[in-house]
């Protein structure tokens, strides 16, 4: 190791030309301590996990691809996709309402968002499941007439419906904020340009605002998908046989609680990792400085020197 400190000025300084000398990063004792501690802790945890027989890795392996676990996983995926899709659509509507010039409309959207973001999703899920206590019969019909049908709320709000409704309504509030943030990232000049061309509000939204808001909406939505995937475990309290509930149903019989929780956790982890890859790709793509340039843009080849019209 070359020690080119102040002390060795006379002797070692001239071995390489000064301009070509590499610049060595400072390594503090803390850095080495950090290395050692982390490795020790890592080894300790690994040894404990592998040697503790109570983890019952054989049971984990046995149930990892168990039919009811896989069916639960499918239901979890379905709940994630369905509530994300519906929640995004509803959120889009709320975001549009919230940026409305008509005060009551924007206030209504605001109240919705405040209520659904301000209360725990677990409480909301249980609330929707028990909505029949509030409205035993749902009557769909024309007000002040006898036309219409009554639906038994208890039958309608089956656990899965309650789960879907709860997750969707909650997600909509978050997506509304994400989408509204995206809208406000579009410059005022863009809206003025669209207006001055005589674009209708709908065309302006579809062709100018939404395409430009996407770069900030998409990465955040990816995050929400990952969050939602894990968030679906909450609906196990309603007795919906999703991934966690499927595991719970098995260990209620076999008392192999930890191994089955590990099975569920591993599946959550696998799916989250699978989702994080496209998510990080999306984030990279949209965070780059050139992201203002659409992907299909061609490379610029200057055919004439700039300013030739002058």
């Amino acid at each position: 190791m070359v020690t080119a400190t102040n002390k060795g000025k006379e002797a070692t300084m001239s071995s390489i030309e000064a301009a070509l000398k590499p610049r060595i990063r400072l390594r503090t004792p803390w850095e080495y301590t950090g290395w050692v501690l982390s490795i020790l802790a890592g080894i300790g945890i690994l040894v404990s996990v592998l040697t503790n027989p109570n983890f019952k890795w054989a049971v984990v392996a046995q149930y990892f691809t168990h039919e009811s676990i896989l069916r639960g996983l499918m239901l979890t995926i379905f709940l994630t996709l369905a509530s994300m899709t519906l929640g995004t659509l509803l959120g889009l509507g709320l975001a549009i309402m919230r940026s409305s010039h008509v005060k009551p409309i924007s206030i209504a959207a605001n109240i919705y968002i405040t209520l659904f973001r301000g209360t725990p999703v677990l409480v909301q899920l249980i609330f929707w499941f028990n909505i029949s206590a509030l409205y035993p019969n749902l009557t769909i019909g024309i007000p002040f007439t006898n036309i219409g049908t009554a639906i038994d709320m208890n039958a309608l709000m089956a656990p899965i419906t309650a789960a879907l409704v709860g997750l969707t309504l909650n997600e909509a509030a978050y997506m509304a904020e994400i989408i509204r943030g995206g809208f406000s990232s579009v410059g005022k000049g863009q809206i003025e340009a669209a207006d001055s061309l005589g674009m209708s509000a709908g065309t302006r939204m579809r062709k100018v605002i939404i395409p430009q808001a996407m770069p900030s909406i998409i990465p955040a939505t990816g995050n929400q998908v990952i969050g939602m995937f894990k968030g679906t475990s909450l609906v196990s309290v309603l007795g919906v046989a999703e991934l966690l509930q499927s595991a719970q149903l098995i260990y209620a019989r076999t008392y192999e609680t930890i191994p089955l929780l590990l099975v569920a956790s591993l599946w959550y982890l696998v799916m989250t990792l699978l989702l994080s890859y496209p998510q990080s790709k999306l984030e990279q793509k949209y965070s780059r400085a050139t992201s203002r340039l659409p992907r299909k843009a061609k490379k610029v080849v200057l055919t004439e020197p700039e300013g030739t019209l002058r």
Partner: peptide, 13 residues
């Protein structure tokens, strides 16, 4: 009525 802006305001997409 056509309008040309100081900051161009072309649609970047």
């Amino acid at each position: 009525v056509g309008m040309v802006f100081q900051s161009f305001n072309l649609f970047p997409n």
